[in-house]
Amino acid sequence: MILKLNVKLHYRLSAPMDLLLQIEAADLADQQVRSAEIWTSDVAYFSRVAADDGIGERIWIRSEWDFSCTYIAEIAVDRPALDISALPQAPLHLLPGETIKHLMPSRYCPSDQFQAFVDAEFGDLAGGARIAAMRDWIESTFSYVPGSSHAQTTALDSFVQRQGVCRDFAHVLVTLARASSIPARFASVYAPDVTPQDFHAVAEVYLAGSWHLIDPTGMADADTMARIGVGSDASSVAFLTGFGSMELVNQSVSVTRQA
């Protein structure tokens, strides 16, 4: 599948400041960047650095009063659609070292507070079957309500309120997976069927020796997503972090399948 991306950002800065930008689709074995261009407003500094877990890149930028950028890309996604419920869970002592941090609670994913719940609700299931059941439970139990959460909302808040946006749905699934001793991380992606179109957040779980994307909102299938980056939770994968005060002027994200 070929995805065409067109992203535009425009922010007003309160003062000259450093920015950390992460909007480019990663070039990976299961998604190849066929073409990509990024343009920014006049900036004092622009330098690429590696992103978390070796997935994609971030860009350090030093900008003045306004910052704008345009990113256009064409991504070939070559990822099979799998039945995640059939995938086994690895014994903890056999997990590779790089997955261990994704077993632990994080800022927005307090998984240590959910062990009793997952045992009571999903205790008869394991591995991919448990992940699939948790995904279905979130999709059927939670309401997708734009504006119902904010930057400080945690998975526990969303669990209590039973509503949120993609970020919150992903945090809850990551939290429940970690509480089930399954490594899970937060993933920022592009996907064509997301409504309204925007940067999208999903979970990624480690089963059967590899990472698998899973969307608890039900809006995107794994074989239609292009990863931007991954991290412990949303704090690690923000598309734009400003080290100071900034104001959104306008933003647009377009993701389309190429005919």
Results as ranks from 00 to 15, higher is better:
residue 54 G to M: 08
residue 111 S to P: 09
residue 63 S to W: 01
residue 55 I to H: 01
residue 117 F to K: 03
residue 72 I to M: 06
residue 107 R to H: 15
residue 114 F to Y: 03
residue 91 P to F: 14
residue 99 T to P: 06
residue 74 E to G: 14
residue 112 D to I: 04
residue 73 A to K: 00
residue 79 R to C: 12
residue 55 I to R: 00
residue 73 A to Q: 01
residue 73 A to R: 00
residue 57 E to N: 07
residue 72 I to C: 13
residue 59 I to L: 12
residue 73 A to C: 07
residue 71 Y to V: 15
residue 55 I to E: 13
residue 111 S to C: 13
residue 116 A to V: 14
residue 86 A to E: 12
residue 52 D to G: 08
residue 98 E to T: 10
residue 100 I to S: 01
residue 78 D to W: 01
residue 71 Y to H: 09
residue 53 D to H: 07
residue 59 I to H: 02
residue 45 Y to Q: 13
residue 99 T to W: 03
residue 66 D to C: 09
residue 96 P to L: 04
residue 47 S to H: 12
residue 115 Q to E: 14
residue 66 D to L: 13
residue 42 D to C: 14
residue 56 G to N: 01
residue 89 Q to Y: 03
residue 84 I to T: 07
residue 104 M to Y: 10
residue 113 Q to D: 12
residue 68 S to C: 12
residue 113 Q to E: 14
residue 67 F to R: 00
residue 67 F to S: 04
residue 73 A to D: 07
residue 104 M to H: 13
residue 45 Y to N: 08
residue 49 V to F: 12
residue 76 A to M: 09
residue 112 D to N: 10
residue 110 P to R: 01
residue 86 A to P: 05
residue 48 R to C: 12
residue 80 P to W: 04
residue 106 S to E: 07
residue 113 Q to V: 08
residue 94 L to I: 11
residue 55 I to W: 02
residue 88 P to Y: 02
residue 105 P to N: 03
residue 55 I to Q: 01
residue 71 Y to K: 01
residue 50 A to L: 11
residue 58 R to L: 10
residue 94 L to N: 15
residue 97 G to K: 01
residue 86 A to W: 01
residue 85 S to L: 05
residue 73 A to I: 04
residue 59 I to E: 02
residue 88 P to R: 02
residue 42 D to Y: 08
residue 61 I to E: 03
residue 88 P to I: 06
residue 95 L to S: 02
residue 92 L to P: 03
residue 54 G to Y: 09
residue 46 F to I: 06
residue 48 R to Q: 15
residue 65 W to N: 10
residue 53 D to G: 04
